[in-house]
Design a protein around this nucleic acid. Structure first.
Length: 445
RNA sequence: CGGAGUGUAGCGCAGUCUGGUAGCGCACCUGCUUCGGGAGCAGGGGGUCGGAGGUUCGAAUCCUCUCACUCCGACCA
């Protein structure tokens, strides 16, 4: 993509309404534009990141054996009257009436709808286990939206629902989700810690929240700091192996890690003092096992192997996709701007032509652009007629992890410069070497 | 919803107290010079002063109503 033809409305000054760093940087980098309180347009650069995150979530869900689908944003009120939540959910639910005076709502979540779909089409234990999910816009009419996309009213969420014949199978689904979530966050360059949580209005006995440590987080967290060092890495995981999956969960949930709601001061005392940490975190996902809470009132039953009609065991699981964009920035930025992890960057590399219009630099840039494209890597090429400082500042602000700088001085020696946004380290090399290096960095992603 | 604020050009702001017909910086357009970390000079364009009503010869400014947004609190992916 050539910057001269792109739409990247960066701001030099901080918009006054933005209080936290991710909100400021998203506005300055031209990623979003606020349309109403807690409601945003996703401009091209922001949309690219959102799509990258969505893609990773999809890939990891499918890898775990979960099945993608798509449910509507608007839902009939009757479905919610059936579960009893139409009245319980309160003011946070946006209620709408259509021209025929039918009551609708903009879905804040989809337990009722997925249960309706399930009961209409599934009747036998032989069809289980089943886990369906979708990534769709939600609306929760927050009393006070704030922090940009971190607490918007409209937000993009992955929500999944598992249906199993008994508690044991359903808890395996719970564990499977925990592992798939851990892998999802790791691919985004995040350390998200599963913490025992309180259940809230969704309900359920077992529930963990996934928190990214950040000073600006809304939740207070208490943890053994050794949890931060745990990594799944590239280990192979058989999602059908109950014992193996449970083993991974145990590995990640044994060390003390709780939010303020479930914090146990006495238990916390048993953590060695040197590792005892209190901080703040951003919630980026949550998983629940809620037994037959929805299946019973809504009649989601199957016939078991003895011919008996039994309610299915369910769980639900969410990842805040749009919130993750903000959370990643909170976790990865510096005073000059965003620093995207390679897994979610809007463009893998930026290309800066220091002397636009110069035959040699123009040709070298075009060649690099083409060579990267041949590897399936789309470069953001700053081909504007701007001075070097302005181009560097823009690249630093939007946070592409790698930058190739092409100037007449280096080019005379056959060299370009490859710079890491994260470390600032710059290295001179031939264009071919730079392309190969970028190719190698992204080969595994 | 309780408390505190703010709405003036795309962004950041001054002007409001004390009414006289809208200004600054950045961004944008043109030209020249400049060119490895947000250049300089010259010229230029862009405004329902959130909206409605009122007072007045005259309203960004005073009055009334209203809308929107932000911050603190209770609530939350």
């Amino acid at each position: 993509m050539r910057l001269s033809r792109y739409f990247l409305p960066v701001l030099r000054e901080n918009p006054s309404e933005a209080q936290i760093v991710s909100h400021r940087l998203m506005l300055r980098a031209g990623m979003i534009r606020q349309q109403a309180a807690g409601i945003y347009s996703w401009l091209p650069l922001g949309y690219r990141v959102l799509r990258r995150i969505e893609e990773i979530v999809h890939q990891e869900q499918v890898r775990a054996g979960h099945i993608p689908m798509l449910m509507p944003t608007l839902q009939p009120a009757d479905l919610w009257r059936e579960s009893g939540r139409y009245d319980d959910y309160g003011e946070e639910m946006l209620r709408i009436r259509d021209r025929q005076k039918r009551d609708l709502l903009y879905g804040p979540t989809n337990e009722e709808m997925i249960t309706d779909i399930f009961r209409a089409h599934v009747g036998s234990y032989r069809d289980l286990p089943l886990t369906l999910y979708h990534i769709q816009w939600k609306f929760r009419d927050e009393i006070r939206p704030r922090f940009g996309v971190m607490r918007g009213r409209e937000f993009l969420m992955k929500d999944g629902y598992n249906f199993d014949i008994d508690k044991e199978a359903s808890l395996h689904a719970y564990n499977r989700h925990m592992v798939s979530y851990l892998r999802t966050y790791e691919r985004m360059g995040l350390t998200a810690i599963p913490m025992r949580a309180a259940s809230g209005p969704i309900g359920g006995d077992n529930t963990h929240e996934f928190l990214v440590l950040a000073a600006t987080g809304e939740s207070e967290v208490y943890y053994d700091d050794r949890v931060q060092d745990l990594r799944l890495g590239s280990r192979a995981i058989d999602y059908d192996d109950r014992a193996a999956v449970a083993g991974v969960c145990e590995e990640f949930t044994t060390l003390y890690a709780r939010t303020g709601e479930t914090h146990d001061a006495g238990l916390f005392e048993t953590v060695p003092e040197a590792h005892r940490k209190v901080g703040r975190g951003i919630e980026v996902g949550q998983i629940f096992y809620f037994s037959t809470k929805y299946s019973e009132p809504m009649g989601a039953v199957v016939v078991n192997d003895k011919g008996e009609r039994v309610p299915v065991h369910m769980g639900s699981h969410g990842i805040g996709v749009s919130r993750l964009v903000g959370a990643i920035i909170e976790a990865s930025h510096d005073e000059r701007g965003i620093i995207w992890p390679e897994g979610v960057t809007p463009f893998p590399v930026g290309l800066v032509n220091l002397k636009q219009g110069d035959g040699a630099t123009d040709a070298a840039c075009a060649a690099i652009e083409g060579a990267l494209a041949a590897k399936g890597l789309e470069v953001l090429y700053d081909d504007r007629d701007e001075r070097a400082g302005a181009k560097f500042a823009t690249m630093d602000l939007i946070g592409l992890p790698w930058r190739i700088t092409v100037g007449p001085r280096g080019l005379a020696a056959g060299k370009v410069e490859l710079t890491s946004r994260r470390t600032g380290a710059a290295e001179e090399m031939t264009p071919e070497e730079a392309v190969a290096r970028i190719g190698a960095i992204y080969a595994g992603l």
